[in-house]
Design a protein around this nucleic acid. Sequence first.
DNA 1: GGCTTTCTTGAGTGATCGCTCAAGTATATA
DNA 2: TATATACTTGAGCGATCACTCAAGAAAGCC
Lengths: 190, 190
Amino acid sequence: MPRKPSYDRDELIERARDLFWQRGWAGTSLKDLEAVLQMKPGSFYAAFGSKEALFALAMERYAADGRERLKALVQAHGPIRALQRFPKMVVENDAAPAKACMLSKTLLELHAHRHPLAQVANQHLLSMEAQFAELFQQAQSSGSIGGAHDPQALARRYQSDLLGLRVSAEREGVDAAAIADEIAGGLSAL
Amino acid sequence: MPRKPSYDRDELIERARDLFWQRGWAGTSLKDLEAVLQMKPGSFYAAFGSKEALFALAMERYAADGRERLKALVQAHGPIRALQRFPKMVVENDAAPAKACMLSKTLLELHAHRHPLAQVANQHLLSMEAQFAELFQQAQSSGSIGGAHDPQALARRYQSDLLGLRVSAEREGVDAAAIADEIAGGLSAL
DNA sequence: GGCTTTCTTGAGTGATCGCTCAAGTATATA
DNA sequence: TATATACTTGAGCGATCACTCAAGAAAGCC
């Protein structure tokens, strides 16, 4: 009996993610979303419930995409080469709505207000860190890097470097590709 | 003939800086400022002109403080030791309203909107980078670090690492002090 | 004390915020 | 084709946004 929605929900989430990623939480108004999603307020709230709920979906999608891109890199080049290529790939992706990490942007914007979305962002960052640690672990097992290092510590430092890189990449007048090369180079010394 | 203001302008700017630093641009309302500065709207606009103008003053103050703290460190320990201590000092300063850098927070929040304050933030970041480069240069001249490196490149990487560290420090469940130690340790290898 | 000049006050401006809801429209089943 | 069940529409809700301005209060100079 019912009527199907006229939209592709996944594609809407994707478009919302790009908008949120670029403009942030407070910087994205419902009017902006209505324009990009081609939805009136009623449809919007019927579909997603609230701006906050959609933002959470957008972050989930963002994190999932990141995991997949890294996984693909691992499939093609192995763990350590993947970790070396990842920074440059992120920085050189001109199709992305922003260079900076959506999760860190969200965290920085909302942490002081103890906004739930800040914690969600941190959770996703933790899961990314775990993925990095797993790759360092694999690289160690296969002998690609020395066994003296703690994979957790390597992951922690790698993620911090990546976050710094992506803040730098958002700036103008900074050669982010050079920083990405140095991060990759640092992994060769392990 | 006139009447003097009942407030200390510098102290007001300092309090505004702390509030903006913690909550960001959109996250800080005029009501918040009125409460912290103990000012009614009329006095506020007579004194500062606009929220944007005060934010610019706050960033200037923030940058000046950063420069001075680093300078003091240099006076006490010399350039390379200062650069090594600076990350830990920033991360361990519990009196600060936030761990993350106010300039990078501002940049990330406002860059997409091409807000003038984002450019101002970037200018301050560039001047900090220049200060780092000068210190690397001095360390090189005095033989504290090898002569093979480009001070500009070292400064660029150092600032990126610092920004990453300070994003990480804003998170919960991340051992930022350990990252700070690693950054310092990296400088010893030069 | 009187006068001038500035600072202080706070109600109120229009605009925008996220969001609601009743009415209208389209579609899958019977 | 009739009916039930969504989906779509858009005017408009109260709250909050940054900001204004006219009126009152206070301090320096004569």
